[in-house]
Each structure stands twice: as C-alpha cells, then as structure tokens.
C-alpha cells in the first residue's frame, strides 16, 4: 500500500476511503478534511472565537492542534473532575492539557476545578447521590453545564468538542437500539445557539474514524493520556464501538455509512425538531435554560448538600 500522493510506503490505510497515506501526507489530508467539515457544516469562521473542550485525551488535543494550525482563534477549557481512583486520572490528564498549552503560546487554557468551585469532586457528588460506581450521568451534567458557562462568560462564539465518527456512530447505535427519538432529533455535528443561554456546539472531527485521530496525535507527537477514565470500564459505548468495528472489519465503510447516511436522512427531514419543543426558562440561579420547574438540574445537584 503506497501513499496516493507521493508513492512512498503508506503509514495508514483507510479502507473505507480506499486511501493510503504516508507520514507526511496523512497530517496534510487530516487538516484539509477538518477544514472541509468546518466549512460544509458552517461550524465557525476565522473571525469567531472557538472554545475547545479539552480532556487531555487524543481527540481533544488533536482538535486543538488542528484548529491552531488552520489559523483559528482557539482556546481550551479543561474541567478538573477530581477523579483519582488510585491512578491520579484527573491530575495526569490535566498535566497533558497544560503541557500542550505551554508548547503553544497562542493557546490559552482555562481550568475549571469542580472541587474548588462547588466543594465536591465528581466521585464525592456521586457518593452523596448514592451512585459511587456510576458517576457518568452526574459527570456529564456537570461537564455540559460548566463548558456552556465558560463559553458564555468568556464571550466565545462556539464550543467545539473532539467527538469522532466512532463516538457518534456508537451513540447513534445506542439511540437506535432503544429508539430514543428525542436524542436522535438532537444528534448532529452542529447545534445552533438558542439565543437564551446555550452556546453553539460543533464537532469538527465527526467524520474521522477514531483510528485516524489517534494516528494524527501519534504522527504529530502530541502527548496525550492513553488511560481511560476509571469509570469508563464496561461502558455500553465501548461495547457498541466493538460491535461496529467487527462490522467494519467484514465490510469496510459500514460504520461510516451508518453515520453519514443518518446525517443525510436528517438533512432530508427525518427526526426533525418537534414543533412543540419543551418550554425552556432561565434557571433562577445560574441563568442557563432549563425545562425543569424552578432550578436547573445542575443547581439542584448542589442545593441538596
């Protein structure tokens, strides 16, 4: 398998595209494809300020790197969840994020320390709420709220996350298995700002396989945290990814078509937003929109302390 652009030995073969590329041409292609997704989905323009959600993992650091290389004004936000679990997971992932920022003088990293700000780390909140083994739904709620808060307070135009096609396809697979129509309505690479306190959200890597974002970080020598969050073991999303990869192995492109044809169907009107969307009002405490009566779910989390 030779590089399609120069004929040297390929470093990565992407069977779904029938495309092999070498160590020089893969990163070039990767940047071009990201730019194309940003443009095709009208995610953001060069004049806009982008906030990148940084976890210290490969996808988020690759996204930050690519956006800076493409000349976008991109800052990072890292949410320190205070997860230790005997492996200093949060501390080590924060170090990776900080090390990346230190190497890129144009990039600013905003760190949100949940324990410091709200008095409890994620494991502590989960413990109090009797969910010590499965803190993920609480963690997700906190991350979404805090990223949105930082984006709005910092005057950013858009919040970008490093979700790749495997992430999106696994989510789609789970949503289809349970026919969660409400989630299917809201799954898309661009979610517009609502003008009432929800920032625009974009996923510029949504067409890359996870293997490709990993290859980019490897080739570029970006140091990321290879370990998983200790609470991710046994997550259904991992099982879905494995299932999809087995299908992909037998029929290259299966995973890609599953996701991209869903996007096409959505653009043609499938799972369009309901006309009678639930009524939102600003939370009296944090001002972020919520459908819950009175306080939003995030603020209620700390009320019960």
């Amino acid at each position: 398998m030779r590089c399609r652009r120069c004929g040297n030995p390929g470093a990565i073969n992407m069977r779904q595209h029938k495309l092999s590329l070498c160590l020089d041409h893969f990163p070039e292609w990767f940047l071009e494809q990201t730019q194309r997704a940003i443009k095709n989905y009208r995610m953001f323009a060069h004049a806009e300020r982008v906030l990148v959600a940084i976890s210290g993992g490969k996808d988020s650091l690759a996204l930050w790197d690519v956006l800076l290389k493409l000349g976008y004004q991109a800052d990072g936000v890292y949410i320190d969840l205070g997860i230790d679990h005997g492996s200093s997971y949060s501390a080590r992932s924060k170090d990776k994020a900080a090390a990346f920022a230190a190497q890129h003088p144009a990039a600013r990293l905003i760190v949100v320390d949940i324990l410091h700000l709200y008095g409890e780390s994620i494991p502590q909140v989960a413990q109090r709420r009797h969910r010590p083994q499965r803190p993920c739904s609480i963690c997700g709620l906190i991350k979404r709220h805090e990223m949105n808060r930082v984006a709005l307070e910092g005057g950013y135009d858009v919040l970008a996350t490093g979700h790749n096609l495997d992430d999106e396809a696994a989510t789609l697979f789970g949503n289809v298995l349970h026919w969660q129509v409400d989630y299917l309505r809201h799954q898309f690479p661009v979610l517009p700002a609502d003008g009432q306190g929800l920032a625009r959200k974009v996923k510029p890597f949504c067409r890359f396989y996870e293997r490709e974002t990993a290859a980019y970080t490897l080739i570029r020598g970006i140091d990321y945290i290879e370990d998983e969050c200790p609470y991710a073991t046994g997550a259904t999303s991992l099982a879905h990814k494995e299932t999809l990869n087995r299908m992909e192995h037998d029929s290259p492109g299966a995973k890609m078509h599953f996701y991209t044809n869903f996007l096409k169907a959505k653009e043609a009107g499938l799972f369009a937003a309901e006309e009678t969307a639930p009524e939102l009002h600003p939370c009296p405490q944090c001002r972020q929109p919520t459908s819950a009566p009175d306080l939003c779910n995030f603020c209620r989390l700390w009320e019960e302390k």
Partner: peptide, 8 residues
C-alpha cells in the same frame, strides 16, 4: 500496539 478505542 496502540489501542484507539476510548469510551465514556
């Protein structure tokens, strides 16, 4: 060999 699948 680098595993590329991450969860969570």
């Amino acid at each position: 060999i680098v595993s590329v699948i991450s969860g969570g």
